[in-house]
Design a protein around this nucleic acid. Structure first.
Length: 560
RNA sequence: GUGCCCGUGGCGCAAUGGAUAGCGCAUCAGAUUCCGGAUCUGAGGGUUGGAGGUUCGAAUCCUCUCGGGCACGCCA
């Protein structure tokens, strides 16, 4: 990136002029008219003196400009807009750098990061809502890995607790299916059993009592329900393996509630009277003392709650992979919960202080109405995938292009993933089944299509481009804008990692594809005197698209 | 009741202290004998919910207010 060089020189110039500044940044200006990079440093430096008129930001900017005017990579430096410095990079430098535009800058402080995402409970089907933690978490893991961090992918699944007891009750009531089921049917069956148990739990006090007994029995590992439990758990995990495969996720480790609850309970009991308190027969963490709210860690029935399990989990996770930070990719509805539990974890296990982090994402809703696993009114991953794949097939039919099943699947998945990732994590996401998953415009397939088209051009052009000549290089506006955009990939990818925001990459790739498609529309590539240059631009765009899509967890087919 | 989040063209979103608030969908008008039309060009559409304030500079920060969502002791 030319940016690195520029930033170094800018810092040196500021220092040489005798100014103190620790926060010097080069930003991407809103329009090419303001250069390829810009800096507001002169405005920052003048800030304390602007009011009394002692220091003019324009004077400072001009001094800095004077120091940077004679570099070998800048075309010119301009002072504009009341004190901004606008840097224009030489076209030949942008072109020379095309071969390295896919490089992502390594974070200056590489960390060991656990990314914990998924959290789907067994005996339930994965639906639209769960999809966000899977897709966001996986993308984040890729982006952070790309930035040079050591990443550990973790999932944590609830394989014990009231929801399991409800499903067991449901299985007993519905009876086991008589014929052999495939993994999808098994998941569907378990989903029904859970919905049944859930319903009965609310509507019949007798059932409620029985289900509570099943719950306690499972925690005590009494033999009575073990067989059904093991069968249901096995089916469910087989189903999840398929889901991970569909989503392209490979976890480093799956953690289960069943293997952490006793340790969690033990930690609570050891600290009762110190950190935890007894209250109404339960053991609570008095969050109110710390400006938070109280939460029950061990129920009055003597069963550890999710809170206590998280305590046991955090210790086990840290033993497994001594992370600098554990990023829990979990919805915003659990913000209050995490504040309390993280506080409790830090008090019980001080070595984990500052290491637990909740990455909160907005709610996923359905425009058509509420989703609820409780009533079974959900759109599952497979249903969504089939729906979108059908739309893809329709487009294919009209476009005369021939694609195989694998590509249809990959494009449908790309459309779905992009739909989730283009929103900022903090933003709520309302799913309109008819419109949300788009195949054109700002969409995954738009990027995939642009990539496939580039590959096609490169195939046509054949291998082995000749050496680029830089003398008298004149760039047309579309060529220059494209080269400029390619220069930005590294810094955007870096920023996305620092701020945990894959949507920045989505936005960038859309801009890049637009720049390329305009360039493509206006200029011939192969049958052109500037073939070498244009092929280099095309090649670089293809590679950045592929690399960027990879960071999002989206495949980039050669043909589609 | 307390706390947290959100409010940006008709719709869905981007921009989290910088310059002229961007993009897609939808609407209207156009582009293909030529490297892939899932594409491209153009047009209309905005006092960023409202009122104050801080700042050289505010969609962004602060205060108040209106509207929506979520969470607040025995679910996960």
């Amino acid at each position: 990136m030319v940016k690195d060089q520029l930033l170094r020189d800018l810092k040196k110039a500021v220092k040489d002029l005798g100014y103190q500044a620790n926060d010097i940044v080069c930003a991407i200006p809103p329009t090419p008219a303001f250069g390829d990079y810009s800096s507001n440093i002169a405005l920052q430096l003048a800030k304390p003196e602007i009011k009394n008129g002692k220091q003019s930001p324009i004077d400072i900017a001009n001094k800095i400009k004077g120091k940077l005017d004679k570099t070998n990579y800048l075309e010119k430096v301009e002072v504009a807009g009341g004190g901004f410095l606008n840097f224009f990079i030489k076209g030949e430098v942008l072109v020379k750098n095309l071969t390295q535009v896919t490089q992502i800058p390594k974070d200056e402080k590489p960390q060991k990061l656990m990314v914990e995402y998924g959290h789907a409970n067994i005996l339930k089907e994965v639906h639209l809502g769960h999809l966000r933690t899977f897709i966001l978490g996986e993308s984040l893991a890729r982006i952070l890995g790309g930035a040079g961090h050591k990443v550990f992918r973790a999932n944590y699944q609830g394989d014990i607790g009231l929801h399991v007891a409800k499903a067991i009750w449901g299985i007993e009531k519905l009876g086991l299916p008589s014929k052999e089921l495939n993994f999808e049917e098994k998941a569907e069956y378990l989903g029904k059993a859970y919905a049944q148990g859930s319903l009965d739990y609310e509507e019949s006090s007798e059932a409620k009592q029985k289900i509570n007994q099943i719950n306690v029995s499972l925690y005590r590992k009494e033999p009575q329900f073990q067989e059904l439990y093991k069968l249901g758990r096995k089916w469910s995990l087989e189903y999840y393996d398929e889901v991970y495969k569909i989503l392209g996720i490979k976890y480093d480790k799956l953690f289960f509630e069943s293997e952490v609850y006793s340790r969690g309970e033990q930690l609570v009991l050891e600290n009762t009277g110190k950190i935890f308190e007894k209250s109404d027969g339960a053991v609570i963490f008095p969050g109110e003392k710390y400006g938070l709210h109280n939460r029950v860690f061990i129920s009055s029935a003597g069963v550890p709650t999710y809170e206590a399990k998280d305590l046991g989990l955090s210790e086990k996770q840290f033993e497994t992979f001594p992370f600098d930070r554990d990023i829990h990719v979990v919805g915003s509805e659990q913000e209050g919960y995490f504040k309390v539990v993280i506080k409790a974890i830090e008090m019980v296990l001080p070595k984990l202080s500052g290491r637990e982090f909740h990455l909160s994402y907005g709610m996923v809703g359905l425009k058509e109405g509420k989703m609820s696993s409780r009533t079974g009114e959900v759109v599952t991953v497979n249903e969504l995938l089939n729906m979108v794949a059908e739309k893809v097939r329709e487009v294919v039919k009209e476009s005369r292009l021939e694609v195989n099943r694998e590509v249809v699947r990959s494009v449908a998945m790309g459309a779905i993933k992009f739909t989730y990732l283009k929103f900022a994590p903090s933003s709520n996401l309302v799913f309109d089944l008819q419109q949300s998953v788009s195949l054109q415009g700002d969409s995954g397939p738009y990027l995939q299509y642009t990539h496939a088209r580039i590959r096609s051009v490169l195939r046509e052009a054949g291998e082995g481009g000749s050496e680029l000549r830089m003398e008298n290089l004149e760039l047309e506006v579309e060529e220059r804008n494209l080269a400029r955009r390619l220069e930005y990939f590294g810094s955007v990818a870096g920023q996305a990692g620092k701020e945990y925001r894959p949507n920045l990459i989505c936005e960038y790739l859309l801009d890049l594809a637009k720049d390329f498609n305009l360039f493509y529309q206006k200029h011939r590539i192969i049958a052109s005197e500037k073939k070498d240059l244009r092929l280099a631009l095309t090649q670089a765009t293809g590679e950045v698209l592929k690399t960027g899509l990879e960071l999002l967890g989206i495949e980039a087919p050669e043909r589609m």
